[in-house]
Design a protein around this nucleic acid. Structure first.
Lengths: 257, 257
DNA sequence: CGCAAGATTGAAGTACGTCAATTCCAGTGG
DNA sequence: CCACTGGAATTGACGTACTTCAATCTTGCG
């Protein structure tokens, strides 16, 4: 069932049927979590790497003040604890933001896949490096922009990432976060997250309904956020001037099929 | 000459003489840069990975507003562009903060070292994962603490990292940054960086003289910063309750040999 | 000695935090 | 069908950490 991971990896390279099966076969079991539960706690020594099958999760740390800071959002197709193939101890936690199902892959099994010489190994390494690039971009986003631009940037990223695994329909995608959780990712308080969301909503660029965001004006959002999709290293977003998502001519990318 | 890298890797695993020679032999040339010069520009497609031999550098991005944000400091023993073994295009820049010498390693040569099955390959992968852990910690630092605590955290980290490669003498180490550059890493203005530094100086925890910092009270600094060295995954800082650097009893760690 | 870059200081503005009250809304039980 | 409930969203008022601008002072260095 790991459609999403395969779809994601396809951005980097073509996968053979046996590669797909190798991923499939590496999943030894599937576990479900409810919103708020820890999938993998800080200080733990997990023997298995998790693959997100459905739902959203977050990578976070808790400070001694009690504040929690989210470092990454994990959506279907993302791998959780890849580094524990070498690093033994979790230096942060993984928590479920919604009901979610995760596939468990033994660390040795993943190590065999990722360190093998071939398309699959390189594709998995690529995915890990992209995760790191995303982390760098979050750091810059946090350090260099103010809240409204920051939120715009986050939404642009999640939109493209969701799209890459086929989870965007009519410019809308599942977005199960409370405003407080948005704040924990942007480094702002829940109250200010609310005001920031209202700002973007008043501009007509986005709207929410229950657990779903809709991006009405991707262009405007991207420009406002100074969003350059290059860091996602998606096929077509960076190579030799073929701007797939950011186009200077008119037309809302958000409404593309 | 890559003493520093070898010393760093030794934290993770013992290296054989042939491993050391393999690293040594992989360096095809050495280049020097002056402060302010770009070692590797954003958008570039470098064929070589750089290894810091001497001096300090930074990993940074430039926003459209002109603001630059530093995502990492690179000191002797650090590798610069490891991800370009797979990611082709640099999505950020590497810039020299002081005069520095870097060794050039062809991306294919590094790939052979890092993807090989054995202690050296695992040690290099470990170093890459630690860099990522540092990045996560910076994100949390930026998002969750205010400037004085943030600066304290940064100084604690750089102190331990410098120490790990043998660059700390009597609680002092080379620190060639201007206050403006400190600000670019902490996400604050140069003016505020100045006031923040004065704060820590007034508390008697640190002092500067020309290009050198001295950490007078590592303990106090670490406590103030809520600094937990676990993320550095250094030998002895995390495993089975043997707190090497953070001890609850008295005595300045900063003055240890 | 003199210059330029960086460090320092002051004053005034702004983005965001905190606290606390109110409203909204989905789910639950009667 | 409705009243009840708890969590989340929203709003207002006020405090504060930081920014910006601009002046002055230090320091390294040719």
């Amino acid at each position: 069932m790991p459609h999403h991971l395969c779809k994601k990896l396809t951005q980097f390279t073509a996968l053979s049927e046996s590669d797909r099966r190798a991923i499939e076969d590496s999943i030894s079991s599937v576990t479900s979590f409810r919103a708020g539960e820890d999938i993998s706690p800080e200080g733990g020594r997990p023997t298995h790497v998790r693959m997100m099958l459905s739902g959203w999760a977050r990578r976070y740390k808790t400070l001694s003040t009690g504040h929690q800071h989210t470092m990454a959002f994990l959506i279907p197709g993302d791998l959780c604890d890849v580094h524990i193939t070498l690093l033994d101890v979790m230096d942060h936690s993984i928590g479920a933001l919604s009901t979610c199902r995760v596939g468990n892959i033994h660390r040795d099994a993943l190590a065999r896949l990722i360190y093998q010489d071939g398309p699959l190994g390189r594709a998995l390494s690529w995915a890990t490096l992209v995760d790191e690039a995303i982390l760098r971009e979050w750091l810059v986003n946090l350090g260099g922009r103010q809240s409204a631009n920051r939120l715009s940037h986050l939404l642009c990223e999640m939109y493209l990432r969701a799209k890459a695994v086929g989870l965007v329909t009519d410019a809308s995608f599942y977005f199960p976060l409370t405003q407080g959780e948005v704040g924990e990712a942007l480094g702002i308080s829940g109250v200010h997250a609310n005001r920031t969301i209202q700002d973007l909503r008043a501009r007509g660029w986005i709207s929410f309904s229950s657990d779903t965001v809709t991006i009405h004006e991707f262009q405007a959002l991207a420009k406002f956020a100074d969003f350059d999709p290059g860091y996602l290293h998606q096929r077509g977003t960076r190579e030799a001037g073929e701007p797939l998502h950011i186009v200077s001519s008119g037309g809302s990318v958000g409404t593309m099929a």
